[in-house]
Nucleic acid binder design. Structure first.
Lengths: 343, 343
DNA sequence: TTGTACGCGTTATCAT
DNA sequence: ATGATAACGCGTACAA
């Protein structure tokens, strides 16, 4: 680990550190000659500007923080996260940002983490995901004027920068699909019940039932976490019912494969003949499970892309930020879990 | 975004900034009284130390860089990555570190990225993954005394801190399993051919063949990338052969599901009856595909954990670093892709 | 135990 | 177009 500084470069190039600094930041007001000379010396000395010093002086880190709520233990399991990360990464690449994954330090809750990385100025802005009801992170960020973009929705505020799908409509359509296949006893299995995305999907599900005059059965709405195990466990509950469902809407593919596993183990019911399955996020799991699962493609990679674009835009123009909400398309990918042989 | 500094805290608490600094870094030589007083003021003013200033002063960022080679486009697709991240994150949490995901900025190659985040001192150390032959990142890190740990192996140096499985032995055992099932025409499909993990697995595969006096057929070793599409494409090649394989070892689950997909589409061959499949990494894909896939569990989460532990240890004790190599267990998870009905 | 004063490496302001 | 100099906010010898 060497430590070539601007001073060294300046001295060898016979200029002042300000000049070197201007070369580094590609300032206009500098002659082509000195610029080349300085660049040459930088190359020769293998100079890299110290980013701490930079940040200290200009208040910018060129780092974006990606915050995932830890209440979802799946963060590092669910392919959704990875796809978002992929999208974010592709944009930060083009804009010379890096990504910070904040981790809950000893004794920290989610809000603490957010506060810390923002207030210690480790990052220039945040991408928040999977909002909850009365989400503290959103509230804090908004009240403290922290640049952020939400992937998802927020019920409390209307003027926050966000990117989302119309999950309610998607759930409505997905449920309607099952109804149109003749199913009436449709259950809804979800993860964290206070997550906005869950609520929206649940609402869409309910709307579909009501619109088709199907009575809502309370036993058919159960939730746990966004985990495979949760799906397995919750399906066990459903199988205990006297009046078992003939179709299930899952809030997530990961949950859905758990559900599927449980159904298979029962050896009594077949998918899709006895129980149809429909799910969300269209991850690789839905594509390769047996049977393949009908799932809503929410465009996760695009969610990450759009969110980081919006954030970086807001960071650049220091004027007023773009607090608009963007709604991305979704698409129901029909697969075997809702396809009967005679169709 | 406020900007409470030590000065503010010092003033209000009626002490000097050095005293505040000592409280922040939990210095011993300070009276309980003033400590409490300062802490109180910090709380009241909502003070957070500026991390740029800290880094500048003490040369530490408390950030670990996670470097994934971009030659594998799968980085953000392959569950392996996410599992490693999960392991890393669980350790950084306990040690008050955060994680930086470096992204290739415009015009940067992989080595450039590594150089940049290290030389600009954005991170204290690196976790490298998926090493290649004559890996430039490893060479650079070693030559410049950059604290790093490799997840994987390195052929050129013997004294670098690393965590890995015995992939050669695993491949040997996996291939032997197929041979013991009576298969003789065993192909090996891999990703990036210069990645060390590919080479090791290939070697183990070869060893198994040789030990069982099976002639090596050059047509049976093909490679592309660590992608589903690659598996699909490569399987198409194999199906064109006159002498088709009756078993395939895949270097990765993602590749394997692509292979499986292609086999199914052929409508001529069944897994495992006509073609057995065995793979690596035991991701959720292997567990839920149809048929389920026999795969080597390499303990990805543990790889991430051990690597970050080792790195953080080396960062803490500034003495001589632990350059040992740790070999983790692996386990072949047998599933339907190698299980005949009559067994 | 506490305070003073300087250094960390860069950017920004103000001259020239 | 270039240079001198003062921040930026914190850590740390050194002094008290």
């Amino acid at each position: 680990m060497q430590k070539v500084t601007m001073k060294d470069v300046a001295k060898l190039a016979g200029v002042s550190t300000s000049t070197v600094s201007r070369v580094v930041s590609d300032d206009d007001r500098i002659s082509q000659d000195t610029k080349e000379k300085v660049l040459e010396v930088m190359e020769k000395l293998n100079y890299y500007p110290n980013s701490a010093a930079r940040s200290l002086a200009n208040k910018e880190t060129e780092i974006i923080g990606l915050v995932m709520p830890s209440y979802e233990e799946d963060i590092f399991i669910n392919p959704f996260f990875q796809e978002v990360l992929k999208g974010v990464s592709s944009i930060t690449s083009k804009n010379s940002f890096d990504i910070l994954i904040a981790t809950n330090h000893e004794g920290e809750d989610d809000l603490d983490v957010l506060k810390r990385i923002v207030q210690t100025q480790r990052v220039d802005g945040l991408i928040l995901t999977r909002s909850k009801k009365d989400d503290e992170g959103i509230k804090y960020s908004k009240e403290h004027n922290i640049p952020f973009v939400l992937i998802g929705s927020c019920l409390e505020y209307d003027d926050i920068p966000a990117v989302d799908n119309d999950n309610k409509q998607a759930a409505y359509n997905l449920t309607s699909l099952l109804i149109n296949k003749g199913r009436r006893k449709i259950a809804f299995i979800s993860g964290e019940i206070n997550s906005i995305v869950t609520l929206k999907r649940y609402k869409g599900y309910l709307n579909a039932l009501q619109e088709h005059d199907i009575e809502v059965n309370d036993d058919y709405f159960i939730s746990d976490e966004f985990l495979e195990e949760s799906g397995y466990k919750l399906m066990s509950e459903l199988l205990k019912l006297n009046d078992k469902p003939d179709a299930i809407v899952c809030a997530d593919d990961l949950i859905c494969v758990g559900v599927l596993k449980r159904i298979k183990e029962s050896k009594k019911y077949n998918v899709p003949e006895d129980i149809m399955l429909a799910s969300f996020n269209n991850t690789i799991l839905a594509k390769y499970s047996n049977p393949t699962i009908t799932s809503v493609d929410i465009n996760s990679v695009q969610l990450g892309k759009k969110a980081s674009k919006k954030l970086i835009n807001n960071l650049n123009k220091k004027s007023k930020s773009d607090n608009s909400k963007e709604i991305l398309d979704y698409k129901i990918i029909k697969r075997d879990s809702t396809l009967l042989n005679n169709e």
